[in-house]
Simulated scan of single mutants.
Amino acid sequence: MALSAAASTPATAPVSEPRYDAEEILALALARLEDDKAEDIIHIELRGKTTIADYMVVATGRSQRHVGALAEHLAEAFKARGVKGVRIEGLPAADWVLIDASDVIVHIFQPEVRGFYNIEKMWSGALAGGSARTTRD
C-alpha cells in the first residue's frame, strides 16, 4: 500500500516567535537605562506579590528631553529584541513615562515628579518582605 504525497510529507511545526522571560527583559531594561545615563535606577521584584508584572523598574532622567529619549530608546531596544506588545504612556509630556513590557514595567521620571509620587517607596513598602534594589546591588 503506497502512501499519498500529503501523508509522506512531514508536517511542519509552526515557527514560534522568541519568548523572553522576565529576567531577560529586566536585564535589557537595566543595561539600556544605564547606557543612556539614567539616574537612580532601581528595580523591585513583584513576582508572587501581584499579577501586574514580575518586576518594576524606576529611573530618573535629568530633563523632559532626557526622559523622552530614555523611554524611546528603551522601547526601541525591546522591539529590536522581539519583545512584543510594548506600550508607552506619558509621551510627549515626558515628566513621567511608563513603559509596559508585560512582565516588566518601567517608570522614568523627571526628578521632582519622582520625588512627589515616590512609587518605589510605596511598592517596596507595601510588599511584605519586598525591597528595592539599585543596579549596583
Score class of each variant (00 low, 15 high):
2 A>I: 04
12 T>C: 04
59 A>D: 08
33 L>H: 04
75 A>D: 07
9 T>G: 00
126 A>N: 11
2 A>P: 13
91 L>N: 00
123 W>Y: 10
73 H>Y: 10
91 L>A: 11
71 A>V: 08
5 A>S: 14
76 E>M: 07
47 R>M: 01
121 K>F: 00
26 L>A: 03
116 F>A: 10
61 G>L: 07
11 A>M: 13
71 A>C: 10
118 N>M: 06
43 H>R: 10
132 A>Y: 07
116 F>I: 10
92 P>E: 05
22 A>V: 02
59 A>S: 13
60 T>V: 14
128 A>W: 09
3 L>E: 13
85 G>I: 09
67 V>C: 08
52 I>A: 00
60 T>H: 03
107 H>E: 10
27 A>K: 12
24 E>A: 14
24 E>P: 00
28 L>F: 04
53 A>H: 01
10 P>Y: 06
16 S>D: 10
120 E>L: 08
16 S>N: 12
29 A>H: 01
1 M>N: 08
97 V>S: 03
39 E>Y: 05
29 A>P: 01
15 V>F: 08
130 G>E: 08
128 A>D: 12
66 H>W: 06
38 A>R: 01
44 I>Y: 06
1 M>I: 02
32 R>H: 07
63 S>K: 09
135 T>Y: 00
78 F>T: 02
58 V>T: 12
78 F>R: 02
79 K>F: 01
